[in-house]
Design a protein around this nucleic acid. Sequence first.
RNA 1: GGAGAGAUGCCUGAGUGGCCGAAAGGAACAGUUUGCUAAACUGUCGUACUGGCAACGGUACCGAGGGUUCGAAUCCCUCUCUCUCCGCCA
Length: 423
Amino acid sequence: MLQVNFLRQNTELAKKKLAIKHFTNLNLVDEVISIDDQRKQLQASFDDLQSKVNAASKEIGAQMAKGDKDKAEALKNEVADWKKQLEPLKEKMAEVEAQLQQVIVQFPNLPHDMVPLGKTPEENEVVRVGGVTPVLPPNAVAHWDLIKKYNLVDFETGAKITGSGFPLYIGKGAKFQRVLTQYFLDFNTAAGYTEYLPPFMVNAASAFATGQLPDKEGQMYHATEDDFYLIPTAEVPVTNVFRDTVLKEADLPIQMTAYSPCFRREAGSFGKEVRGLNRVHQFEKVEIIQIVHPEKSDAVLEEMVAHVEKLLVSLGLQYRVLRLCGGDMGFASAITYDFEVYSAAQERWLEVSSVSNFQAYQTYRMKCRFKDADGKIQFAHSLNGSSLALPRIFAAIVENYQTENGIALPEVLQAYFGSTHLV
RNA sequence: GGAGAGAUGCCUGAGUGGCCGAAAGGAACAGUUUGCUAAACUGUCGUACUGGCAACGGUACCGAGGGUUCGAAUCCCUCUCUCUCCGCCA
């Protein structure tokens, strides 16, 4: 959530930056300021009146104690008058505050200076390409054929049990998920991240804090009976660990990692996009999250990108790093790097990680602050990234490591799996 | 699911209608002093909005929301959560 004071002091800059994110309703900036003006004014008159009421109430007590009943009664009448004026003020204030909230949550985060202009995924900037170019056997096929051939994942039965996009992993396919999860978590904790296993459902307050509500309401599964949301990423519960807290500066940086299944309705997806494991409603992911000093977040983002990159290198996959353009970035992010691995069999890049700096956008929403050396309270910055999302890594490994007879495993996974080959 | 108890500041915990934004102790921080890995003493020590260059004020907040009252941490109602006992159960 953007801060009104920032918009007030940097109106033109904010508009310029919002435009980069292809946020079109720029008049909303002026609107928010004028609503806030109203709010301040109401607040001032309310406080003023309330202050009189408080003083008079105290006086009434004093008069009663002295036994001057008449004076007390007179004061009571006066207070009653003020209170009548207070009522409409209170109502108006609630109304204006709701209006302010309703408008301000519509603003996406402002993009970082490094964010490239552009609207579509094609305009994302390729920062670098790395890893090993896969060499496939002559009759190589895509993962959806391989997982069928080796009976690793059964989509049909998953669809029977739940619905399409809910894969059922079987045998070595299931074990491979477990092994990948374990490897990723070990990799992250070795780098200093603390492991968490969070709830997989969150309440509305948590979903709001990280920006899923109200922006992505339709993308989450909602358990209406209890008003819980199935998490679309571990980012939601784990970042919320520090909702409504004031940390000490020495507590920073906070580094967390968590495995979780992710549930996404993915309304509106279709075609090749959703084939096989490319896009599913439930998938596994290991996430890394950091809460850091605002001055450090730029450097930490680079560090997290390097971390994910190292992980991909260790898996022997070819990858590229993209700096997302303004139009393709997430709502709450100030800057995002996407990692894509190359699927030679599909001849396309698959997104496997997204590393973002949210700056104070989430922390302001969820009131995650810290006390700096001068004793001042500041909002921390939050960042997160996938390290890594499993299905597409699964797909890429299965495809890129396929041989004439079986599927090999990246060296780092062999000890975990207890074999040189997946099948 | 049933019954009961509770929710106060970083923690423990007092406070049952005005003197309470809140005692006391602990922790933390700063200083003084003595000194062998620490003690004693002194001070500071909630958050948000708002006015002011500042000093310093105003308002709100004692789980959340509503109500009673001139006045609520304190009384009433609803909800949430925690604990204990019972039931059920991976």
